[in-house]
Design a protein around this nucleic acid. Structure first.
Lengths: 226, 226
DNA sequence: CCATATTAATCAATCGTTTGATTGAGTCAA
DNA sequence: TTGACTCAATCAAACGATTGATTAATATGG
């Protein structure tokens, strides 16, 4: 009569993965121990080896788990407009605005929503900075749609730029946002403001303005002084 | 008659600190072991406790060591102009250009120059993302002059912005550059280009253009379409 | 100036703990 | 019974720290 008649095993796997995300995000790969993870998951530490083949396997599967279950706002966006379609340019401007909004939403899922989601993004951020050898394939697959969408939009917005310049611009746009996410703790430390992004909407709008202007999109630039 | 008559002890301390920077930067605090560090420094592992009181003390002193010996290009810059001095605005534009150039130079000290310098900046980047409790004071002291200089320049360049908006802009400028530095490995991974920043000068110029335009500085914006 | 007492620095060896991994017995549904 | 799953107990290895002996450097007294 209990709520888990079958599949208690899948449930244990699931609990281990979520606990792994939390602990790995908090302490890093080396700092986290399988005993602590298992304890958080209310499971026996030997099950890490049984289900995942060891600590490394658990780490790899945890990242895969994040990649699969992530209800990304970005991939739900409509595809970027075709470069030579009529009205492609204003559509691309709106597309970049929508992308930044969705990117921020993906990254800044706050702990109030889901403790695991927040830890998952912290873990991804850490991996971007220093990829664990085991996670490289998952990480690239995870990030590719983000990169390619911005590159496609830039092809319309800045047709004069060559491939390298578009890559630099893409990394600048995503870099400023990722930096916010990855160094939140440090920013709060140096500003002394413990709840720094007081208003996420204002912050999002800043990213949009700064990026569009940074690209040199005239429509986003303030009126020239008279 | 040998070149090191006295002070063999200070030399050991020094070797331990440099080895610590290298190993901590490569493997992180938890991943690095004092045995490995001592071996790299050609010293006995007991000397870590003797000279620094333990692993944590070595870590703290290594970060202090970086902070002290860092021949920062940024702090060598002339002070930012006074807000109400004549010609402050063009001076501030030039000041921001100089700052970005110096900031990139500080961050991207390549391994060819000094293996330890490169590792030191990787370590700082790691600390910005997840500050070790022990390092927070050093880290804040390290970063403050960078933050304050940009904020002072923005006060001249964007007098209309309030304090929060200036902070957001500062973090966007530094964020894109720090992202390049901290996620170089990942960028090379996802682009498939193992020697990504082919030309550091072009990259620096991109940061300057993107930042000045992002701020909405009209002087940096391309001619409005006729 | 030398001999000796004192301190500082380094070493090999070892401490107790914790790590990830393994084992073998046990549980339970099919 | 079988096969998938879980458990407490245990393993060897690595960890950070400590020890006591040893050497190098300095200070002191005659």
């Amino acid at each position: 009569m209990n709520a888990q008649p079958a599949d208690a095993t899948q449930d244990t796997r699931h609990r281990l993965l979520e606990a792994a995300i939390l602990i790995f995000a908090e302490k890093g790969y080396d700092g986290a121990g399988i005993r602590e993870i298992a304890q958080r998951a209310k499971a026996n530490s030997a099950l890490v080896t049984y289900h995942f083949g060891g600590k490394e396997g658990l780490y790899r599967e945890a990242l895969r788990f994040i990649h699969q279950r992530k209800h990304s706002q970005v991939v739900l966006l409509p595809p970027p407009p075709e470069p030579d379609a009529p009205g492609a340019r204003p559509a691309a401007i709106q597309g970049l605005k929508d992308y930044i909004r969705a990117f921020v939403a993906d990254l800044m899922s706050c702990p109030a929503d889901s403790e695991v989601d927040a830890a998952a993004m912290a873990l991804i951020g850490r991996e971007i900075q220093m990829p664990h050898p085991v996670s490289a394939p998952v990480l690239v697959e995870f990030a590719r749609p983000y990169m390619e969408r911005v590159l496609a939009l830039l092809q319309i917005l800045c047709p004069d730029l060559d491939g390298d310049a578009r890559l630099r611009a893409t990394l600048s746009i995503q870099g400023q946002i990722l930096h916010f996410r990855n160094s939140l703790e440090f920013i709060r430390l140096i500003t002394g403001d413990p709840d720094f992004p007081k208003d996420l909407e204002v912050l999002t709008q800043h990213f949009i303005d700064f990026s569009l202007r940074g690209l040199g999109v005239p429509e986003a630039f303030p009126q020239p002084r008279p």
